[in-house]
């Protein structure tokens, strides 16, 4: 038997963590850049979890940020309104972790409920139903006065930091990756490939479709909770349709069905997005022309259209990097 190798993915994550921490201490990475890295890591969770639903299982969700919204609001309501946590109090960190998990579980329950229509619906119809559910969730936040209604939930304690986010992000990727590379994951893949054939080789397609939605929603909920505790705000507009489409663009840019692609695209597009924001602002300042922030979304929309027209398989196709992929059990 071969000696068990040190997991490559874990090694890369630790290396990345150490490098960023050191650069941060040396002031090469400033607080703003670290914030963008944190956002990217949260988008890694969102993109990989959406990929589990859309890319691996071949279902289609257009309301992924709705799940994130449930996680954000539930976890923030617990930490802010119920337990009144504070990062300065020792021990509150543990309660915070509990709040995040509770947010994920709440999102998973919603995912389970949304998974059921998916049993009967396919493709575009499913897209519309998930969009509808996402909008219903957003409308509900908008009208719930307990969590601030249209003003949003303010004053959320800042528990999310580079350490918590990278741990959550790496854990999410590992769990989703391990799930995909198991017999259960192959069952999900078979639904994407040919649902009738999957059913006729004995796969309970219903169960796996619901499972994909439930897992996907759970991790989206975790991401939403981390986001709320990073930017210290949970607001209905953060979880609308357009935000879901941004995550969708990530998985298509990275390659539907590739975890590696989702991770790369989450980083790439989060940085691109910030770059565009800054670039447009400085262009407007320099020229004095009325160039608005909406141009960022114009470019995003064109990017999506171009990917679909000219590079349907995205960056990675369905391939995985050797860092992510586990070796076959032999």
């Amino acid at each position: 038997m071969k000696l068990q190798k040190f997991p490559r993915f874990l090694a890369v994550v630790i290396l990345f963590y150490a490098v960023i921490e050191i650069l941060f201490k040396l002031d090469v990475v400033n607080g703003y850049l670290l914030h963008i890295i944190n956002l990217s890591l949260i988008y890694v969770i969102l993109a990989t979890s959406l990929n589990l639903i859309n890319g691996i299982t071949g279902q289609f969700s257009l309301g992924h940020m709705g799940f994130a919204g449930v996680g954000a609001y539930v976890s923030a309501a617990l930490s802010t309104l119920v337990f009144k946590l504070s990062p300065s109090k020792p021990g509150d960190m543990l309660v915070f972790v509990g709040c995040i998990v509770a947010g994920g579980l709440a999102a998973a329950v919603v995912g389970l409920l949304i998974g059921f229509p998916s049993l009967r619906l396919k493709g575009d119809y499913l897209a519309i139903v998930t969009l509808g559910f996402g909008e219903i969730i957003r409308t509900a936040f908008n009208n719930l006065d307990v969590v601030g209604g249209p003003r949003g939930l303010l004053g959320i304690p800042k528990f999310s930091n580079f350490t918590t986010i990278i741990i959550a992000s790496a854990l999410s990727v590992v769990v989703i990756r391990n799930l995909i590379q198991s017999s259960h994951g192959r069952a999900m893949l078979s639904i994407r490939e040919n649902e009738v054939a999957a059913e006729l080789v004995g796969i309970d397609t219903t169960r796996y479709k619901v499972m994909a939605f439930t897992f996907g929603a759970f991790f989206a909920g975790i991401a939403g909770g981390l986001l709320a505790h990073l930017i210290q705000l949970a607001h209905p507009t953060q979880f609308g349709f357009i935000k879901s489409v941004e995550v969708l663009i990530m998985i298509y840019a990275g390659g539907v069905g590739s975890i590696t692609g989702s991770i790369l695209a989450a980083f790439g597009l989060t940085f691109l997005s910030e770059g565009l924001r800054l670039g447009i602002r400085s262009l407007a300042d320099a020229t004095g022309l009325p160039i608005g922030g909406e141009w960022r979304m114009v470019i995003y929309a064109l990017l999506l259209i171009f990917i679909m027209l000219f590079r349907n398989e995205g960056l990675m196709g369905t391939k995985e990097s050797k860092i992510i992929e586990l070796p076959e059990v032999e």
Partner: peptide, 28 residues
């Protein structure tokens, strides 16, 4: 995309929709 998988055109349609909306609001 006529003879590509149905979802490709659906996603493209989302892109077209976003493009029109944001182009209109970005256009001074």
């Amino acid at each position: 995309l006529r003879y590509k998988p149905k979802l490709s055109s659906l996603i493209t349609a989302i892109g077209v929709s976003m493009f029109i909306e944001y182009f209109f609001s970005a256009f001074p």
